[in-house]
Computed example of a mutant assay.
Amino acid sequence: MAAKGYVKLASGHQMPLVGFGLWKVPKETAADTVYNAIKNGYRLFDGAYDYQNEKEAGEGIKRAINDGLVKREEIFITTKLWNNYHQKDIAVKMAKWQNEQWGLGYIDLYLIHFPVALKYIDPAVRQYPAWWLDDAGTIETERIPIHETWQALEQVVDEGIAKSIGVSNFQAQSIYDLLTYNRHPLSSLQIEHHPYLVQPELIKLAQENGVVVTAYSSFGPQSFLELKSKRAEDAPLLFDHSTVKKVAEAHKVTPAQALLRWAIQRGIAVIPKSNNPDRLKQNLQVVDFDLSQAELDAISSLDKGLRFNDPGYYLEKKPLRIFAGGAGDSAASQ
């Protein structure tokens, strides 16, 4: 039985239902941002090699530990293996390297970031953000099966580098396949999840198999406006949607709190980010009120299959159509 505000993973470890997402947190401010989030009550931090701020985030946590604000065992670190490091021996080395960057002794949850392998790049000399290999925006895939990468993550658990493992941005077929050969449990599936992209069948599949779902981009287009995403710019903000506002007003909470409660009341963990101290606190205050089934259904009915984090859409020179055939794969969402 998980403690209030926590969910139990298939590995047996407990994970907070509300965490702090480190995507787009500048490395220059990451240590202070994380330290202040801990002061405000956050215990789960969701990172990735791709965010390029693991070392600094770890420094913020170590400062909080040294100041007596928290103990290491009270902190839950999620991080992810990037696409250029799927080869088994490289993936294990990468996990060790990332663990050293965090400097906290171990990783709580280690995920495969995307179900696609790309050409290797030396992590110490990476020059380009996200998917690209060079100035021209070149992308090259590699012939490395997910089976091999998952075996690397299992070795990471065997060696005590990570306590739990999982996947991110996987769809149903890949999950069913993984469940035919996994030796360690698939503890978590992290996906884009908000009222414009509900993915109910994928969530049912995960939960039926004991896989905890973590939602990223819980506020929908809000997370992508600064990236100049046309899909986000064309989508009405969820904070301003009449359905969300009506639910929020009924419970005397903010639209952001209503959106987060909609997820966690359905057993889905969330990892919002905010630089605003008041919103930081508000985002944690979502475990002490309940939405009615009618309110949950009303928010879910906003589903448009509208996916914002889609490399089949924004990688124009070489689209990687990992979500083809799934939610968000329609002309209407272009």
Rank of each mutant, 00 (worst) to 15 (best):
H184N: 12
Y51E: 02
A91E: 07
G68L: 01
Q334W: 11
K273G: 00
L296G: 03
Y106G: 03
L320K: 07
A298Q: 05
S301E: 12
I112W: 12
K39M: 01
L186K: 07
D303L: 10
L178Q: 12
G166M: 10
E226P: 12
E74Q: 11
D108T: 00
V157P: 04
G326E: 14
E201D: 15
N283W: 08
G12Y: 08
S301K: 15
G41S: 03
A235W: 09
A263C: 07
S292T: 10
N309C: 06
V211Y: 04
T254H: 10
P185N: 04
G47M: 04
A269N: 06
E148H: 10
S229M: 14
D234I: 12
V125P: 05
A162S: 09
E192Q: 05
I271V: 08
P311N: 13
G166V: 01
I77M: 04
Q334H: 14
S218R: 12
V287G: 12
I268W: 03
L69G: 00
D158Y: 09
A332N: 13
Q207T: 10
H13A: 10
L202D: 05
D32T: 09
K318P: 03
K96W: 13
N40L: 06
N84L: 08
I271N: 06
K230Q: 15
N283E: 09
Y176Q: 09
F308S: 02
Y196F: 13
S11F: 09
R63A: 01
E142H: 03
D46I: 08
P255Q: 08
Q52W: 06
Y49A: 09
